[in-house]
Computed example of a mutant assay.
Amino acid sequence: MAIDVLVVDDQPLLRMAFTMVLGAQDDMTAAGEADSGEEAVRLTELLRPDVVLMDVRMPGMDGIEATRLIVERCPETRVLILTTFDLDEYAFAGLRAGASGFLLKNALPAELLAAIRSVAAGDAVVAPRITRRLLETFAHRIPEQGPVTDEDPRLAQLTERERGVLVELAQGRSNAEVAARLHLSEATIKTHVSRILTKLGLRDRVQAVVFAYESRLIKPL
């Protein structure tokens, strides 16, 4: 079945370009276009697209608030953040708001299409190196929440092995890298990641990384 994609950007030429790229694919459909956060939320609720390509800097309601509302109201829809700079604080805010991916606007068409397919399939789209850079740059913005002994109660649901895997993920490592460091198979790591997400009620590994920092399982560099 075709992947329905809603394109959100306040620049008409960019919307047109994204729509043309999508229209050339056999497995994708441009479900609609929105030029503001408000319109993005309204159309998502109306059209229920599989993926929303979300710009972050727009007048009125920005892409961050729109992402939060979409994730809250339409949890089956995935949001892929589009931004101009690879260390844009808006991108990290978007991930914290529930976005499943992060991509630069100057990405090649093939990269954009691959990201859309990955997000639609339920995977997160943030390369480990970018995850690491985002966290190094913006994790210090996460507020301190009392003494270290005030551990998030959800962590108690994890086994020691799962906590160890989560720590590795939070440092921006891929499944293969985690598997090598913990001397386990990549398939086993994937199973642990799936269980971690289920136990913590999180959507994907990006949200797991953010949770690890916000719960203070590990501290920002």
Rank of each mutant, 00 (worst) to 15 (best):
A170N: 04
L197E: 07
L166H: 08
V206E: 04
E38H: 12
A66P: 02
E89N: 11
T77A: 05
R15E: 03
G146D: 08
P59A: 11
K199E: 14
M16A: 15
C74M: 06
R132F: 12
P153F: 12
T188S: 15
L113M: 14
I142A: 02
P109L: 12
V209A: 05
I70F: 06
Q145W: 11
G37W: 08
A107W: 10
G94M: 05
L169E: 00
T149G: 01
T84V: 15
L202C: 07
E151G: 02
L82W: 05
V52S: 01
S118E: 09
E111S: 13
L166Q: 10
K105D: 07
T83C: 00
S174L: 01
I130W: 14
L43M: 12
I70P: 01
L69K: 12
V193K: 06
A115S: 14
E65Q: 14
A24M: 14
G98C: 08
M61R: 07
L95A: 08
A24E: 15
E39R: 14
L184F: 09
H183Y: 10
R203L: 09
T83Y: 00
D26Q: 13
P12S: 09
T67N: 08
A99R: 13
V119A: 01
V178D: 03
D35Y: 04
A208E: 00
T44Y: 09
G122T: 12
I70Q: 03
